[in-house]
Design a protein around this nucleic acid. Structure first.
Length: 655
RNA sequence: GAGCCCGUAGCUCAGUUGGACAGAGCAUCUGCCUUCUAAGCAGAGGGUCGCAGGUUCAAAUCCUGCCGGGCUCGCCA
């Protein structure tokens, strides 16, 4: 509602400025007045025009208001303050729009686009931890937002199954534990749910191997040898690597499934290597002059790419560019960035080659996950060839991400370069208190630090499944005392919804750029600005309808007397905010910031709770007013459910 | 050395295309459960928006410098 009327208003003002003053503003800024009593839209454009037109802002505002005339949906416009133009909606007309369900998926900015979101991408060598949860929850929420705006989204989880991290665990099994392939297979078959799971086992083994490397140089040689074997394929190390990787991927999928996070495709590095993606990309890069062979200086014998912001690129100085990025080493092997360029050419459908596809896992809800394979199944969906890409990767990888984007630009794919987004976020750390609670011994130096970095190598971090379990246990304790009449499985179900609500909200309430200092006390909180707070508001609304015997949906469909909105600013604010849902979605997408969804849901819940205490609906004697209050609850309830759904949070039946 | 991010209430954070008096949660204190269940509501205290300049009708927001914290920058992966 709000967004459509805003767009209409902007168009109207733009036309008027053109006609009346022959001016064009690059942007018509629209704010909201500090209080809803002043109107719903505030235009500060008179201030901007004052200099251009050499008239006082108030005068301009008055002229514009006079010239605007009638605008559909609006009651009137007025000049406020030093020259604001405030637009006041016709509340009844606007409320009627709010009552009818919003169809943002058809009109959203992403409507009709095919977008690829890559998230999770955890090294398949150990259990997922809180840091990974932030990535997956941010990514999954952004997927839901894009879908709400009408996009067709492919969700990918990139698997670096031939990297050094997998090699380390292979080394651990082969040389520390002296286990062969069949023993590892037995171990996997014998493993259970966490903490008896294979990914937990590898978590500890990985930490032990990392320590073992420090004992001797020979151990490090084994690591390098194993890594090369895995990359090459066709040997025991490679087979064990695949075995480990596959088992761990399954565990990661299970962990994420607990949070309602699903994927479409798992592209693996092994196929990028073995299907020779790089060779094709290399040809293109050479042909288009993005790469050149360095004959002098420190990069002699390498194929290098100029960096976008480098001095040499800007000044075109003579001699070797020492700042250039090496893509192919002098020993003819390709770097990580090189492989990533090839992979991104594939994503945009510019490589001229595709993966093979194999079924990997079928979600109970019906979705199918595919995994890359050298020779796949004949019948498969096609991934890649998208309009835009969002790579959910933490901010430390900004450099390589930019290198890939610049390579695309250099190859003449300017549009694709503009549409490849590094969805960057800051990592999760642990507070020193949290680290101590986990039983880690902190050095004196660590204790002085404001936070402790999570480290898989040190085996230091909060595992995702442990955290989810702790949250469920905490929620279950409450549910058990509140609802002794419910069955064990029902209580478990509600506790799980609450736990997931708490976790997902916690990961989303911070803006992407701020480092989350993880702390059990805060994460386990169900009060205040949390997911359960918003869930509880929905349960309260649902309870009202349960008692009336009329469902919220029925109320939304029936006639409602909206005249009560005229006088009551607080009630109108609820309707207004409910009507701003699609506005919020667009804001989240244009700024790539899901935290706005969290803020929206919380504020709406807060307003609803306020309303809930002020107006006792069931005892209202005026039938018309009672109907209107019920409609208010129904409209807010729906907006709350939808906004939580965007974050992957469900509304429990009771709390 | 270069680049990026951050610095707002005791703590954790919003305030993102400059806009009307700087907000929320937690913590502290005071009230409210025979109510549509209090995972809630109402109220109180708490601020040199890191510092200093500048641009602007208007700066927490933009620019410059400085201070403090973090990250990145390899023929490693």
């Amino acid at each position: 509602m709000y967004l459509e009327l805003q767009q209409q208003l902007i168009q109207r003002v733009r036309d008027l400025l053109q006609r009346q003053y022959d001016v064009e503003l690059p942007r018509i800024v629209v704010d909201q007045p500090p209080k809803v009593g002043l109107g719903e839209y505030a235009l500060p454009l008179s201030f901007e025009l004052a200099k251009k037109l050499r008239k006082p802002p108030r005068k301009i505002a008055e002229e514009i208001v006079a010239a605007l005339g009638e605008v559909p949906g609006f009651e009137k416009f007025e000049v406020a303050g030093a020259g604001y133009i405030n637009g006041r909606l016709d509340r009844q007309v606007a409320a009627r729009m709010v009552l009818s369900p919003e169809r943002s998926t058809k009109t959203g900015s992403a409507a009709g686009k095919k977008i690829l979101v890559e998230h999770t991408s955890i090294n398949p060598n150990k259990a997922a931890h809180v840091g990974h949860l932030r990535n997956s929850i941010l990514g999954d929420t952004f997927v839901r937002l894009l879908q709400a705006a009408g996009a067709k989204v492919d969700v990918q989880n990139y698997i670096d199954n031939t990297g050094v991290q997998v090699a380390d665990v292979v080394v651990g099994f082969l040389y520390l534990e002296k286990k062969g392939k069949s023993e590892i297979e037995a171990l996997i078959a014998d493993s259970g749910p966490p903490p008896r799971s294979f990914d937990y086992y590898c978590w500890d083994l990985y930490a032990r191997v990392s320590q073992w490397y420090e004992e001797s140089k020979d151990n490090l040689k084994l690591r390098l040898q194993t890594l090369h074997d895995i990359e090459k394929g066709g040997n025991e190390a490679a087979e064990i690597g695949k075995l480990i990787s596959n088992a761990i991927i399954r565990r990661h999928l299970e962990t994420m499934e607990r949070l309602g996070i699903e994927y479409d495709f798992l592209p693996q590095e092994s196929e990028i290597l073995h299907l020779h993606f790089w060779e094709l990309a290399f040809e293109q890069l050479k042909q288009k002059g993005v790469l050149y062979f360095e004959t002098e200086g420190k990069n002699k014998g390498c194929w290098v790419m100029k960096r976008a912001g480098s001095k040499a690129a800007a000044e075109g100085t003579e001699g070797p560019d020492e700042d250039a990025k090496v893509i192919v080493r002098s020993n003819n092997t390709v770097t990580y960035v090189g492989k990533d360029i090839a992979y991104h050419l594939w994503k945009f459908g510019l490589l001229g080659k595709d993966f093979g596809y194999q079924r990997f896992y079928h979600y109970p809800g019906g979705r199918q996950v595919w995994i890359s394979a050298e020779s796949g199944e004949a019948d498969h969906p096609h991934f890649g060839g998208v309009n835009a890409i969002y790579n959910v990767i933490d901010s430390r990888q900004e450099d390589p991400q930019n290198n890939v984007i610049e390579a695309l630009r250099g190859m003449g794919y300017a549009e694709q370069a503009d549409n490849q987004h590094h969805f960057s976020y800051a990592f999760v750390v642990l507070t020193p208190r949290c680290a101590e609670e986990l039983g880690y011994e902190l050095s004196a130096e660590d204790k002085e630090r404001p936070f402790i970095e999570i480290s898989g190598r040190k085996g230091f971090g909060v595992k995702a499944d442990d955290l989810i379990d702790a949250l469920i246990a905490a929620a279950q304790k409450e549910v058990d005392t509140r609802h002794p009449e419910m069955s064990e499985s029902e209580r478990r179900g509600v506790a799980t919804q609450i736990a997931i609500g708490a976790l997902r909200y916690f990961m989303l309430k911070f803006t992407k750029g701020s480092v989350i200092a993880f702390d059990f006390k805060e994460a386990l909180s169900f009060e205040g600005e949390t997911g359960p707070y918003a869930q509880y508001a929905i349960v309260r609304a649902t309870n009202i309808f349960r008692k009336t015997g009329q469902s919220a949906e029925e109320i939304l469909g029936s006639e409602t007397d909206l005249r009560f909105l005229k006088e009551d600013d607080e009630l109108w604010e609820l309707w207004l905010r409910a009507g701003q849902l699609s506005n919020m979605v667009e804001q989240c997408i244009s700024t790539a910031e899901p935290a706005y969804a969290a803020k929206y849901a919380f504020q709406l819940a807060q307003q609803f709770n306020n309303f809930y205490h002020q107006h006792h609906i069931l005892t209202e004697t005026d039938e018309a007013r009672k109907g209107f209050l019920l409609a208010t609850a129904a409209v807010v309830r729906r907006a709350l459910i939808e906004s939580l759904a965007l974050m992957g949070i469900e509304a429990p039946p009771v709390m």
